[in-house]
Amino acid sequence: MNNGKSGVVYGVVIVVLVAASLAFVLSAPTSSGGGLTDPSGIKIKGTIDQTIYADASGWNYSHGPINPTLYFPVDYKIVFTVIEEDNLPHTFTINKDKAYTPGTPATSFENSNTGLTLITTSELTQVPGHSVTKSYVFFASGNYTYWCEIHPTTMDARIQINGTAESTTVASGIVSQPIICCGSNGGGHHNGNSVLSSFAQISSIAAGVMKIDHPANLAKFY
């Protein structure tokens, strides 16, 4: 090492380290254009549309069964369209039930701290007939609650996510990651930009797609 030529090694080390750091940093987890790919590279399997009517007396109060339980498969992008039925403020908030026992009231699983408000009061403009569309990907099977934070006693129901054996292991792999993705992009807000021609528009972001995989982690880290 003392013949002095080892400095060339140092130059090579610089070049290699620069390349490695660039490659590493550029592979940073991003939730890109619509967030359909999660950091571990799992693609969603498809899209399901679901329309719900928001009424202070209960979800879907004048449209079939009140507070219906929704059934979805795991790893699908669920596009929720919430249509307002009255001129009262509502939210569309979801959370995971950790220990689901049949028969207990769903209210016991509401927790605003760990839940995710998918659609906020400012997005639901208290105009009957107005609708907001947001999407969400359930990566883990299990029981979830969806409710309105303003009317939690009446507007409160369940979502059941069914997973196959394969998708369950995939989901548990995600759960172990501390990456919690919750990038709502107020789709309603950015629609206001569409009149401004020089704005960069990422239309897929404006769709407001987002996902979380383990709401319980939210409480731990936030």
């Binding site: 408000t117 659609i119 906020t120 400012s122 997005e123 919750c182 709502s184 107020g186 939210l218 936030y222």
Partner: peptide
């Protein structure tokens, strides 16, 4: 202008 920050649909 009276300016404040709101969490919107985020945690903070």
């Amino acid at each position: 202008l009276v300016v404040q920050s709101d969490k919107g649909s985020h945690q903070f």
